[in-house]
Computed example of a mutant assay.
Amino acid sequence: MSKGWGWWFLAGFAVWTFFALQWTDLGCEYPEAYMAVVRFGTPEGLEFLPACAG
């Protein structure tokens, strides 16, 4: 893998982490927060989404 691709993956992971941190502010654990980004995107307002339901 070239250096260029490595930077793209690092940038993508940084963006994914930024969005996951928004879910942790709403009470999700870290693994749930990362999956919530994949399933629901970013949280919008105070609308409840079943992202963190155990």
Rank of each mutant, 00 (worst) to 15 (best):
R39N: 13
F13C: 04
C52D: 01
A36H: 13
P50C: 01
F13V: 03
W5M: 04
W8N: 02
G4M: 00
W5K: 05
L26P: 10
L10R: 04
E32D: 11
Q22G: 06
T24W: 14
G41Y: 09
F40H: 05
M35I: 07
W5T: 04
P31A: 05
G54C: 03
C28Q: 12
F13M: 11
G45W: 01
Y30N: 14
P50W: 02
T24L: 08
Y30Q: 07
W7Q: 00
C52Y: 01
T42L: 12
R39S: 08
C52Q: 04
A33T: 00
E29T: 14
S2L: 05
A20S: 13
P31T: 12
F19V: 04
G4W: 00
F18T: 09
C52K: 02
G41T: 08
F13R: 08
G45K: 10
G27R: 07
L21V: 15
Y34H: 15
F13H: 09
A51I: 03
A14C: 06
F13Q: 10
E47N: 03
Q22E: 15
R39T: 14
V15C: 12
W16F: 09
M1V: 01
A33K: 08
C28F: 12
M35C: 09
Q22S: 13
R39C: 02
D25S: 15
T24P: 00
Y30T: 03
G12V: 10
Q22M: 13
F13P: 01
F40N: 00
V37E: 13
L26G: 10
